[in-house]
Simulated assay, not measured.
Amino acid sequence: MISRVAPPLLVLLLAACTSSSATTTQGKDGPLDAVRVAMPADNPAPTPARAKDAKGAWVSAPDGSARFGYAGEPALLNLECRSGSLVVTRNVAAPIGAAALFALQGSGYILRLPVDATALPGQPGYIWQGSIPADDHRLTLFKAKFAGTLPGGGHIEVPASDVPGALIKRCAGG
């Protein structure tokens, strides 16, 4: 009797040991106690429904930052001043522990800004964020129309505005 029960039981035990979990805890390449959860491929993130003729715009936020986006949607791009540096945040999902170059092109300049996957307090997940000294001459590109591309973050077209230029000037000046 044992010989008939043992092989099926052994197969079940081995299968249970080799099956992979949908979650894995992060180690050296992510925060402690972080959990990566596999997203179903058949359930993509919803895309915002906006009119074809919708125009994105820069706004000055109450905290002094500059934000680019579309009315009624979260900002796509944030600029803020921290200790004489311009912090650039591209609000799209970033993989835990990832690093990339945010390629920005406009007004005769090309800027390849190093960005890292960053967790922001009060927000779920990770987004792309990097910084550059506020007196860097390449920041002129934020004052005119520019385009940006980020691996996994898509392409963004941003119109000219005085809002980012004013922030950069304040940041570089003090």
Rank of each mutant, 00 (worst) to 15 (best):
P121C: 06
N78E: 09
I96K: 04
F102Q: 00
P62K: 12
P133Y: 04
A100D: 10
Q129K: 13
L104Q: 04
P46F: 05
G108E: 06
G69V: 09
P46I: 12
T89I: 15
N43Q: 15
L113T: 01
N78R: 11
L86K: 04
G154A: 10
R82T: 05
N78V: 05
V59S: 10
L113V: 08
A71R: 10
A41S: 13
A71H: 02
F102C: 04
L111I: 08
L77E: 01
T149I: 09
N43W: 10
C81R: 00
S107R: 08
R50N: 02
L141P: 01
A94D: 04
R138E: 10
N91H: 03
Q123L: 14
P31C: 06
P48Q: 08
S131V: 02
K55W: 02
H137D: 13
G152K: 09
L113A: 00
Y109I: 00
A100N: 10
S131R: 12
D63Y: 04
N91D: 06
N78S: 14
T118Q: 07
D42E: 10
L113R: 00
P124S: 15
S83N: 13
L113P: 00
Q105D: 15
G106R: 01
V88H: 06
E80W: 01
R67V: 07
A57N: 03
G106E: 00
F68V: 03
G108I: 03
Q129G: 04
P124V: 15
G97I: 12
Q105Y: 05
A66F: 03
C81S: 00
I127F: 05
